[in-house]
Amino acid sequence: MLEASRICHCVICHDYGDRGDYDPGDHGVIENVGQFGWSVTGVPADEEGPGWAYTIGRRHSRGEPELAMFGLDVGVMQSCLNTLGRRDDLADGQSHDGVINGYPLHLREVEPDWFRAFFGQAMWFYRRPPVPVLQVVWPDRQGAFPWDTGSLAQPHLWLTPEKHPPGVWTQDV
């Protein structure tokens, strides 16, 4: 269940005594959260595996879960997360249209055990992870979702790491 408390332990709300150590990326996240309410961090695909993107700051600014998306072009995922990020009351099990042309997206609650593997900059920002995260799950071109086909094009973070099928997404867990 997503945490109901709005207590925020982020670097904006608390001085952890290390503000002089922030790099330009850290300052960029803080500026984006201040200006837009969240920031989107993209992790590009590389020789080890597909890319992903996730929000930082929705919990701080809106009391809403963070969002994460995997396996598509980082720019596409950032755009999708920004579109969804403007919506309120996002929750596990919801379906959303109007984000990717012609395809619905589903939201699934991320198991907290995945936080360290995928959300490093959010860990820095919040300092007391995990915070609630919803995975934005996309269908294949035929409209089938990973739970329909077993596809590992995107991770199944609604499962615990022990129950997740082995593959590229589980190598760092």
Rank of each mutant, 00 (worst) to 15 (best):
S61G: 12
E3D: 13
H156Q: 08
I12C: 00
L152P: 03
R141M: 00
P50F: 10
W158I: 05
F119A: 15
T41H: 13
G63A: 06
D23P: 02
D15I: 00
V133R: 03
D92W: 11
V136T: 02
A144D: 07
P50I: 12
D172C: 05
T160M: 01
R59Q: 14
Q135H: 02
P132V: 04
G42M: 09
F125V: 06
L152G: 04
D92K: 12
W38E: 13
I56H: 13
G167L: 02
L107I: 08
A53Y: 09
V173G: 14
A117W: 12
R58Q: 13
D172H: 07
P139N: 00
R58K: 15
D140L: 00
A153E: 08
L2A: 11
G37K: 01
R127E: 15
F36I: 09
S39V: 02
I12K: 02
E162T: 07
L107V: 08
C8I: 01
L72I: 04
Y126R: 13
D148P: 00
T170R: 01
A4N: 06
A91H: 09
Q94P: 08
W147Y: 03
V99C: 04
P161W: 07
S5G: 05
F145W: 02
Q135T: 03
V99W: 05
H96S: 07
A91C: 07
P50A: 14
I7W: 12
G98R: 06
D18K: 04
T83C: 09
S95N: 08
I100F: 03
G20Q: 06
L157F: 05
I100G: 00
L134D: 05
F115V: 14
G102H: 12
C10T: 00
R128S: 15
Y126E: 15
D23W: 03
L105E: 03
W114G: 05
R58H: 14
T41N: 13
A68M: 12
R108D: 03
R58W: 14
V168H: 01
M69T: 09
H164T: 01
Y126F: 15
T149M: 02
G37A: 03
Y22N: 02
A91Y: 05
Y126C: 15
T149E: 01
D23S: 04
G20S: 09
D21G: 02
Q135A: 03
E66P: 13
W158G: 05
D89A: 13
R62P: 09
H156M: 04
F125K: 10
D46A: 12
E3S: 12
L84I: 13
D113C: 15
Q94C: 09
L90M: 13
T41D: 12
D21W: 00
G63V: 06
C80L: 08
T160I: 03
E64P: 07
V131H: 06
T55P: 10
P104S: 14
